[in-house]
């Protein structure tokens, strides 16, 4: 194999200062001067630019911002927050807490890997009739104890509809001018399946939003981790200020070796 001598990127340009080639005097993000962005654009606009290469339209900003707020704090019951909190209460290094939580936020059930699979599922089917697809998957599902999916990103949450994910999807639908987008397709997919309590999950609505923003599946998995990061960080750090006894520890009586 032949390896390149240099890194290659379409994202970032650093213009070296005249005195020192290691010190940039200016930087450009997809062609835009960072200081011009800093003066004229919001954080949401710039993160969109970073991920997609162009500044967003008003609707794109709306979609990304709403999703960022919706995912901002998964809450202390969420496994990713719990992973960070467990490391926090047991006094792992503060710099370890966020990465620990982010790894847990990468799982195939409720994490970034599920978002990627949900995006692939939506790409595969979005040219088909959503009601027929829903019917097909409903006929295939074997209801089981535990978390059940009819497809990646769509299913039951603790045995019921995920009310918050459903509410968020409805909010987006009410403000969605895109006629043929992924959110709309999945809305019809869910209309049918929700009669059986299989509905939008957080990973599914994230996948549909990412696709309507033209984000690709691999990028979607990591972006999901990024968007849940603030809540992981806050909850994990909160626990570092408490004694180790401030979180439950299962007693010997409640621990069974099978």
């Amino acid at each position: 194999m032949k390896f390149n001598n240099k890194f290659t990127t379409k994202i970032w340009k650093e213009i070296p200062s005249d005195q020192n080639p290691y010190v940039p005097k200016a930087t450009r993000l997809y062609g835009y001067d960072t200081f011009e962005l800093l003066k004229k654009k919001s954080f949401i606009d710039v993160i969109f630019l970073l991920m997609l290469g162009d500044l967003p339209t008003k609707h794109q900003t709306f979609l990304l911002e709403k999703l960022m707020i919706f995912l901002l704090n998964p809450g202390p019951r969420d496994v990713a927050c719990r992973a960070g909190m467990t490391a926090g209460i047991s006094k792992s290094l503060s710099t370890n807490l966020l990465p620990i939580g982010l790894m847990a936020a990468g799982g195939k059930v409720g994490g970034g890997a599920e978002v990627e699979e949900a995006m692939q599922f939506l790409i595969k089917h979005h040219n088909e009739c959503p009601e027929k697809t829903s019917d097909h998957y409903l006929n295939q599902v074997e209801e089981n104890e535990g978390q059940t999916r009819i497809a990646p990103g769509f299913g039951k949450y603790y045995g019921s509809l995920d009310i918050l994910a459903m509410r968020f999807a409805e909010l987006l639908m009410a403000n969605n001018p895109t006629q043929d987008g992924y959110i709309k397709w999945a809305h019809h997919f869910v209309e049918q399946s929700s009669e059986y309590d299989y509905g939008w999950l957080k990973t599914g609505i994230s996948a549909a939003v990412f696709l309507d923003l033209n984000i690709r599946p691999r990028e979607g998995s990591g972006l999901y981790q990024l968007l849940v990061a603030p809540g992981i960080l806050a909850h994990a750090m909160e626990q570092t200020h408490h004694p180790i006894t401030a979180m439950p520890f299962v007693s010997d009586e409640d621990y069974t070796i099978e």
Partner: peptide, 10 residues
């Protein structure tokens, strides 16, 4: 160095 990065974007 800054110029060790090959920028091929916009």
């Amino acid at each position: 160095r800054c110029d060790d990065i090959d920028y091929i974007g916009q």
